[in-house]
């Protein structure tokens, strides 16, 4: 069994209006040191496979087919054996 943690964010080339708004609010609060802010999604998946390479391949496929829209989003994932 693996626990997969998937992170999805807007691609660098795509403007992130939520991130810009949050950055503005942080500056309002006095956190002037904050530069760019990017907002993303965090997903946890239980993967019922024993082989790490196989699990990795399946998770990658899930990201490509559904979890991320690669037209505008980047993804990365971590696999942890449980």
């Amino acid at each position: 069994m693996f626990k997969a943690t998937v992170f999805v964010t807007l691609r660098e080339s795509v403007l992130d209006p939520q991130g810009s708004a949050v950055r503005g609010s942080l500056h309002t609060l006095g956190f002037d040191e904050v530069g760019e802010v990017r907002i993303g999604k965090y997903m946890q998946l239980e993967i019922d496979l024993n082989d790490r390479a196989a699990a990795e391949e399946r998770v990658k496929e899930m990201c490509e087919k559904l979890l991320a829209n690669t037209v505008i989003e980047d993804y990365r994932y971590e696999l942890q054996e449980v």
């Binding site: 795509v14 403007l15 209006p17 939520q18 708004a21 505008i72």
Partner: peptide, 11 residues
Amino acid sequence: LPGALRRNQSL
């Protein structure tokens, strides 16, 4: 169709 629809710029 190509492309994607993002959050409105104004939020």
